[in-house]
């Protein structure tokens, strides 16, 4: 990513590019485990969406549709809080990988 010179920066230390942190892929932090979404078990309670610290639950057309692994850090709250006996989210092993943390 090309970094601005001092002349190119907006005065007053202002960032005008609202919400551009979506380019930071926090999913690269996962180490060893990741949630797996089992759609047929999902009761659409949205607790996973509510309690995910990294906004990694995919919601499409008013329904929870799965996990966005670009952002999921593998904390596991979604799985613990998933209410049905046959959970719609379970944690599974994931091979460690080394990667950068950005789309750029």
């Amino acid at each position: 990513m090309k970094k601005e010179t001092w002349k190119e920066l907006t005065i007053g230390t202002i960032n005008l590019d609202a919400g551009n942190s979506v380019k930071n892929l926090t999913g690269t932090w996962r180490s060893g485990k990741k949630p797996q979404f089992i759609e047929e078990n999902c009761i659409q309670c949205f607790f996973c969406w509510l309690y995910c610290p990294h906004s990694a639950i995919r919601v499409e057309g008013e329904e929870v549709k799965g996990i966005n692994y670009d952002y999921c850090t593998g904390c596991g709250i979604c799985s613990v809080e998933c209410p049905p006996k046959e959970k719609a989210i379970t944690m599974i092993k994931e091979e460690m990988k080394l990667a950068g943390g950005s789309t750029e």
């Binding site: 920066l9 007053g12 230390t13 202002i14």
Partner: peptide
């Protein structure tokens, strides 16, 4: 205009922002 005013700079931007201020 949804601005972020007064964000944190690491070593890669602080110096440029300060120079911008000095101007």
């Amino acid at each position: 205009r949804k601005m972020t005013v007064g964000p944190i700079d690491f070593t890669d931007y602080y110096f440029e922002h300060k120079r911008n201020q000095i101007e």
